[in-house]
């Protein structure tokens, strides 16, 4: 392992924000793995740290293929992690809305540009990402439908799901979108957690990335083959909404099968404790996403369901 400085941002008072990368192997730039960009992405940072730890062992045992180089950058935003902010700096700018970045742009655009310059020659780009609302996902690999994406490669992570998202205008400023071109195949891996650490899911994400690199010939390593991924388009997920505001009581858990018409959540009156609303499953399927916040607004998405599949 070699520690490298990817870039550094100076502060008026604080220690410099140094973004470190950790490289393994030598030669062709094969895979780059990026952890957190937001201060809420603690699980993502943790996963990368565990990946670095595993790669140290694998390198020590000679499991990195000849002429293959791996780069892991656990976080691009230590400042936000240290102050429990979501975004970068006093101006509260999202790094993952600044790609491809500009050399002479705003601070977050400069961060994005320096990162892109540093990682642009890697064949595979993997990012541990988060969703803008706090919730829990089934572990999946997400790709943007850019015309360049290759879902059969995404299957090689062996996670339960591969999700293809049709990019909205705002998505064009994310790392994933800008990474995904004819030179780099970009994947976002969602472990399902952000601000809390889930060891089991972290372990699953580390294994998925090692499995992918093994199958791409970057590692020589025996691992279980994982899942045969179910590929879904994001727009085919069925959203289940709260019809009232209140305290949310979930009756079903992530990954569980639900039947059409079955009660799957309740909204509780915050003053008198009565059930204000019983939320009914609008379809058969499996719960792919669940809201984790205990308070819900009317119209908040409580669950997203993969339709008509069974456990």
């Amino acid at each position: 392992m070699r520690q490298v400085e990817v870039f550094r941002i100076k502060s008026p008072y604080r220690d410099d924000m140094v973004v470190h990368g950790y490289t393994f192997g030598k030669g062709q730039e094969a895979a780059c793995i990026i952890g957190s960009m937001r201060g809420t992405e603690i699980q993502q940072t943790y996963i990368c740290s565990q990946l670095v730890k595993r790669l140290v062992e694998l390198e020590h045992n000679g499991n990195i293929s000849a002429n293959k180089k791996i780069l892991v950058i656990p976080t691009l935003n230590p400042y936000a992690l240290n102050t429990s902010r979501k975004f970068w700096g006093v101006e509260d700018e999202d790094i993952n809305r600044a790609f491809p970045g500009r050399e002479m742009g705003k601070t977050n655009e400069r961060i994005a540009k320096r990162l892109m310059d540093y990682v642009k020659d890697y064949t595979f780009g993997i990012q541990f990402a988060s969703f803008y609302v706090d919730g829990e996902f089934m572990p999946h690999v997400r790709m943007m439908d850019t015309g360049y994406q290759n879902t059969s490669l995404a299957n090689l992570f062996g996670l339960p799901f591969v999700v293809v998202r049709k990019p909205q205008p705002i998505d064009t400023t994310t790392l994933n979108y800008n990474w995904q071109n004819d030179m780099t195949a970009a994947f976002s891996v969602y472990s399902g957690y952000n601000e809390t650490i889930n060891e089991e899911r972290a372990g699953q994400s580390v294994s998925a990335v090692l499995r992918f690199m093994t199958r791409m010939g970057i590692l020589r390593y025996d691992c279980l083959s994982g899942y045969i991924s179910h590929v879904i388009n994001e727009e085919s997920l069925t959203n289940v909404y709260a019809g009232k505001g209140g305290i949310l009581r979930r009756l079903k858990d992530i990954g569980k099968e639900v039947k059409y018409g079955e009660p799957i959540a309740e909204v509780i009156d915050p003053f008198v404790g009565e059930v204000k609303e019983t939320v009914i499953a609008p379809t058969d399927g499996i719960i792919f996403f669940q809201q984790r916040e205990p308070l819900v607004n009317e119209s908040d998405v409580i669950y997203r369901i993969v339709r008509r599949i069974h456990e």
Partner: peptide, 11 residues
């Protein structure tokens, strides 16, 4: 108008 969790609406 939409109902917030605790006794208020956003309008």
């Amino acid at each position: 108008s939409m109902e917030l969790p605790v006794g208020e609406h956003i309008k």
